[in-house]
C-alpha cells in the first residue's frame, strides 16, 4: 500500500500528475490543484513523483493505510 502526499507550498498545479497517472488517482480541484481522489488505486509506480516538475509529490510505501 502507498500513501500519497503533495507539498502544497511547492505544487504549481501544472496538472502533469493528474494527466499521466496510469491509475487516474488524481482529479483537478476548483483552483486547478491536484486532488488525491482515489488513493487506493495507486500501484506505487512513482511516475507522478518522477514527472512532477516541482518535486512536490511524495509516495510512501506503508504496511496498511492509516484511517484518516
Amino acid at each position: 500500500m502507498t500513501e500519497i502526499s503533495i507539498q502544497r507550498k511547492w505544487c504549481k498545479s501544472c496538472g502533469i500528475c493528474v494527466e499521466f497517472c496510469p491509475k487516474k488517482v488524481f482529479t483537478v480541484g476548483e483552483l486547478n490543484e491536484p486532488i488525491i481522489s482515489t488513493p487506493d488505486a495507486c500501484t506505487g509506480c512513482r511516475l507522478c513523483e518522477l514527472r512532477c516538475p516541482e518535486f512536490a509529490v511524495i509516495i510512501t510505501e506503508v504496511e496498511e493505510r492509516s484511517h484518516e
Binding site: Q7, K9, W10, K12, R51, P53, F55
Partner: peptide, 17 residues
C-alpha cells in the same frame, strides 16, 4: 530553497529528477 522559480509544467525539473 523550494519552490523553484520555474513556471508550471516546465521541463527543467524532470531533468533534475
Amino acid at each position: 530553497t523550494l519552490p523553484t522559480q520555474w513556471c508550471p509544467g516546465c521541463g527543467a525539473g524532470g531533468i533534475g529528477h
